[in-house]
Amino acid sequence: MRETVELSLVVNGRAHPIRVEPRETLADVLRERLGLTGLKISCDVQVCGACTVLVDGLAISACTYLAADAEGHEVTTVEGLARAGQLSPLQQSFIDAAAFQCGFCTPGMRMAATALLAENPAPTRAQVVAGIEGNICRCTGYVPIIDAILEAAGAVDAAGVSEGAR
C-alpha cells in the first residue's frame, strides 16, 4: 500500500483535514480535492505562473510544490482575495482596467501581484514589471495588467493601509 500522510491544510483561513500521497502537488489537491479551481495548471514546470498561490504570503508554483509541504503553513488562493463579498482592491482594479481577455493567467497574476503589493505597497512601474516577470499573459500585452496593479497600489494607499510605507 502506498504511503499517505494526514494533513490539516489551511487554505484561505480554513483548515481542511485531508489525507494525501506525498507525491500529490498542491495544485492537484487544491483543484481536484478542495474544488479550488481558480489556479490553473498550464506549463507544469514553474515557468508560466498560472498556478501561482501564496504560502505564508510568498508566491509559489503550486504545480511544483508538494501538498505535504503546506502542512503548518497558510495557503492563499485567488478564491481567498474577496472578503465578505467585497472584491479586493486588486480584483476591482483588474475589472476597471480591463486587465484580462481569456482570463487564464488572471488568478496567477492576481496572486503574484498580491504578494508584490504586500511586500512593496507603493511599487514603481519597473518594480511591478519585475514582480510579474514570471507570469505569462498571451492576450493583453501586459500594459493593462501593470496599470491595474499600480491602480490597486493607489487604492491600498487611499485606505491608509500602507501609510508611511513610501
Binding site: Q46, G49, V55, A59, I60, Y65, A112, G134
Partner: peptide, 9 residues
C-alpha cells in the same frame, strides 16, 4: 534567478 516563485522555493 528564474522567477519569483522559483526564488521563493
Amino acid at each position: 534567478v528564474a522567477n519569483v516563485r522559483v526564488r521563493n522555493q
